[in-house]
Design a protein around this nucleic acid. Structure first.
Length: 499
DNA sequence: CAGCGCTACCACACCCC
DNA sequence: GGTGTGGTAGCG
């Protein structure tokens, strides 16, 4: 037993020293032409984690890309560099074929679709028409669920079809709007395609009648119960609008004249004759690799190119070539930040605590702020509102603008019930208020056996324990809070961890 | 001897009628 | 037969 373990350990150590002796060479050592250009960052990693760790330690605005290795299997190495530098070496298309964007988990990103069907298995399918209908449906959903306006001209349409397959990427260029992350995009997509998914599942058992009528509002919540909300970063107005809207809220969707949209055009047959959706729902996972504009899969020589029926045209710029603009537009996690950036969310209720029981128990105390539902905790609502409302009487904490102010205020002011421990974990180099942490954060309820080594990966955590409802309330409050305060780093994500 | 993150699927256990 | 659970091949 012990001998086996020691042998394993020795093996691992030998392997580690081997890697140290022969580190991965950076095959491309780029230098940008002008000395005033930003310093060169170009680093390759065998492991995705190492790449992301390097990104965290890196001052430049760098991103992780996956490069397919020469071996035919899916093996990849990970490149960290800036968009500008990647494009510099990428644009010639002599090197760096088979590149993928890694859409980082927890990173704000665009709405995107991976579309494909086998042409032989679907001889009657008109791919272009299906794309048009899909875009129509998606735009309608964005309008109805988030009041976001868009049209086909906002959709970058990339083609990598072959004789065998119709294959497209759609990237939505929404003005000052993005999704909280990849997972939320997936929740949204599954939600708005629910009627189509029903068409497929009902195929297996025709004896179960299709639910009709009110069950099929335009974007039904069953069986995949989901919640939708949007946050607005504008500090001055509509703070309360960031509260979660659950599916019951948009009454207009439940009006009788609304019937299920006909999404039968999305149903296609696979090689084996099974019915699937035109939309690939498997791409909305953590750290998803998404093939870059003008890249091909390693086996094939078909790259993603602007589709002939594409209607999106990026803004012209003096410094940036048109091709570079197209490239930048195609990057799912390349979000143009602005003060008015709205972050869309779409949760599944599996991730959230069941609302029904506590809503029922506290319904009398649930009030409405500017027409939207509050959190179930009026005292927390009031606290958060007092922090973000500039004309509040509490002059000492009103109008906080920076992360550090936010930090101090929350640590010193957050009202903690005695039975709950609440910890803020910060990346060391960005947390300058150590003394504040040491003196203020130790509250009577804080657990002393907190394992600090757990704070490995993510940058900011709010950790609440023992009380799931308070944890969610705190999360909602802080989400509202951060979306209402200017100058919070855009990558700031606050999550509630429950023990 | 260096990828990653799933989900669909299977096998099995357990319960109940 | 219904339901939960654990492990894995294979997909994207």
């Amino acid at each position: 037993m012990m001998g086996k373990w020691e042998a394993k350990l020795k093996q691992i150590e030998e392997r580690a020293s081997c890697y140290e002796r022969k580190p991965l060479s950076s095959v491309y050592r780029p230098r940008l032409s002008k000395p005033e250009d930003p310093s060169s960052v170009w680093k390759l990693f065998h492991r995705q984690n190492q790449a992301f760790n390097f990104v965290k330690s890196c001052k430049e605005n760098v991103h992780v890309f996956a490069l397919e290795c020469k071996v035919g299997d899916g093996q990849r190495i990970y490149l960290v560099t800036t968009y500008a530098q990647l494009w510099f070496y990428y644009k010639s298309r002599k090197h760096l074929l088979h590149c993928y964007e890694v859409i980082p988990e927890n990173a704000v990103c665009k709405l995107y679709f991976d579309l494909e069907f086998n042409k032989h298995a679907n001889p009657e399918a008109d791919g272009k028409k299906m794309v048009v209908l899909l875009i129509e449906h998606v735009c309608k959903a964005l309008q109805e669920l988030y009041s976001v306006s868009c049209s086909a001209e906002d959709v970058f349409n990339l083609d990598s079809s072959t004789d065998e397959k119709f294959s497209r990427h759609l990237i939505f260029q929404l003005h000052d709007v993005a999704f909280k992350d990849n997972i939320h995009v997936g929740n949204f997509v599954r939600k708005i395609l629910q009627p189509a998914l029903h068409l497929i599942s009902s195929e297996y058992d025709n004896r179960i009648p299709n639910p009709v009528g009110h069950e099929f509002s335009h974007f039904p919540e069953t069986p995949l119960k989901q919640e939708i909300s949007f946050n607005q970063t504008s500090p001055d107005k509509d703070i309360a609008k960031s509260w979660t809207l659950n599916s019951e809220i948009p009454e207009r969707l439940e009006s009788a004249e609304q019937s299920s949209p006909d999404l039968s055009f999305l149903v296609v047959k696979s090689n084996t004759g099974e019915e699937h959706l035109f939309v690939d729902l498997g791409v909305y996972t953590r750290n998803r690799n998404f093939r870059l504009y003008k890249s091909s899969k390693i086996g094939k020589c078909v790259a993603l190119e602007v589709a002939e029926d594409n209607k999106f045209f990026p803004k012209q710029s003096k410094n940036i070539s048109e091709e570079n603009q197209y490239f930048l537009s195609s990057l799912v996690s390349n979000i143009r930040f602005s003060d008015s950036l709205r972050i869309l969310t779409c949760d599944t209720s599996q991730n959230k605590r069941k609302r029904t029981e506590h809503v029922n128990s506290t319904s009398s105390s649930v009030e409405t702020i500017e027409g939207f539902q509050c959190s179930p905790y009026p005292e927390i609502d009031r606290f958060v509102l007092s922090l973000v409302t500039k004309n509040d009487t509490k002059g000492d904490i009103a109008g906080v603008k920076t992360l550090e102010e936010l930090t101090r205020v929350i640590i010193s002011c957050f009202p903690l019930p005695a039975e709950v421990s609440l910890l803020f974990l910060f990346k060391e180099e960005e947390f300058t208020a150590d003394e504040t942490w040491n003196s203020e954060a130790k509250n009577p309820g804080a657990s002393s056996d907190t394992d600090w080594d757990n704070s490995t990966d993510d940058v900011y955590f709010l950790q609440a324990t023992e009380d799931a409802e308070l944890a969610e309330a705190a999360e909602n409050s802080l989400l509202s809070y951060t979306s209402a305060v200017n100058e919070i780093p855009d990558e700031l994500i606050i999550e509630v961890l429950q023990e």
